[in-house]
Amino acid sequence: MFYPNSPQTSPQLTQIPYGQQYAMMQRQIQQPYHPFATTEPQARLYPYHYQGPIQQEQGGFITQQSTAASPQYVQMRVTPVDQSIMSGYPNQTANGSSSSSFNYNIHPQQQQQQQQQQQQLRHHAMPVGSVPLQDDRYRKQLIVNYLAPDVTSTDLHELFSRFGELDGARIIYDKQTNMSKGYGFVYFCHAEDAKEAVERMSGYEFHGKWLKVGYSTNPLNIVPSNSSPYVHAGSRGAAG
């Protein structure tokens, strides 16, 4: 039997160049792979992502010199942007860049009308829970959420009447099932009393439920100042 490094198959040491006398086997001759043993700084910083320098080929596509990437890492192929796409944008300079302001050559009167329309939209648009300043009635009506099913309009009136005089209180019921929808409205005579009720009743436990109280901004629920107070009856038909 002959071994790869046996004296019968191995040459004389004098015939082997210096430095390879003890590297006779194939696994010894093959050098191990060192990912950080390279002179390129990109490979030292990113050993798993770097795959060699990027070269520009004919046709405008950018390719990489090395083989496919590892399945664990996804390499994105980048193509140059066609400058003709950006030619339609206004205020574009000769080098292809555009300024931040756009001039669509709008007539001054049209621009003024658009600004007025935007101001009107901001004036009428009102986020949930906010209180408008032009109508004091919005500051007097509250919406009470997360009410228990057994709470009546009379219970709601008695709960909030300790903060001040009320114009009314009612629970909203479903017309088909005649069941409470879980929320109601309270109408105060003074805005200061309503503000105190919002601050003190939010998070209050009532009939096993934690109440959420806020201003009601729905104009359909506003009680006119010259109208008669609501009837605080315990029956659902009268309260709904």
Rank of each mutant, 00 (worst) to 15 (best):
F185K: 00
H232F: 08
Y89K: 02
S235D: 11
K140H: 02
P219L: 00
A238D: 12
E199W: 08
Q120G: 07
Q56T: 14
M126F: 14
S235Q: 10
G60T: 07
Q109C: 13
M25T: 03
Q65I: 13
A197G: 02
S6V: 12
T93Q: 10
Y73I: 10
Q113N: 12
A239V: 11
Q75Y: 15
E196N: 04
F163K: 00
Q109A: 11
Q141N: 00
P90N: 11
H123T: 11
G168C: 09
F61E: 04
Q51N: 13
Q141W: 00
F2A: 01
D193S: 07
E205Q: 04
G240M: 14
D82R: 08
D167C: 04
L156V: 08
Y146S: 00
Q55C: 14
L156H: 07
M25P: 04
A191Y: 06
Y215I: 01
A68N: 11
Q114L: 10
Q75P: 07
F2C: 03
A197M: 03
R170D: 00
T14K: 06
A233F: 10
Q21H: 09
Q28N: 14
Q141G: 01
A125P: 12
V151D: 01
Q116I: 14
V81D: 10
S6C: 11
P219W: 00
Y138D: 02
L121K: 02
P90G: 11
Q120H: 11
A169Y: 01
G19I: 06
Q134D: 06
N145W: 02
E158L: 13
D135L: 03
P35F: 15
G208A: 05
I171S: 02
S87G: 13
H123K: 03
V231M: 04
N218P: 00
R236S: 05
M25H: 14
D174G: 01
D135H: 05
P32H: 04
R162C: 13
M86C: 08
P127H: 15
S84K: 04
G237V: 12
Q58I: 15
K181H: 01
W210Q: 03
Y22W: 15
Q113D: 07
N105A: 12
Q8P: 09
N145K: 01
W210P: 01
G214D: 02
S6Q: 08
T63M: 12
Q15G: 12
Q111K: 03
T38S: 06
Q30N: 07
S235T: 04
T152W: 06
F163T: 02
R77A: 09
P41F: 10
Y173W: 10
Q31N: 10
Y22C: 06
I143N: 01
R137V: 03
Q15T: 11
F102L: 07
G129T: 09
P53Y: 14
E199D: 05
P90Q: 11
Q115A: 08
F102D: 03
S180I: 02
K195N: 10
N95Y: 14
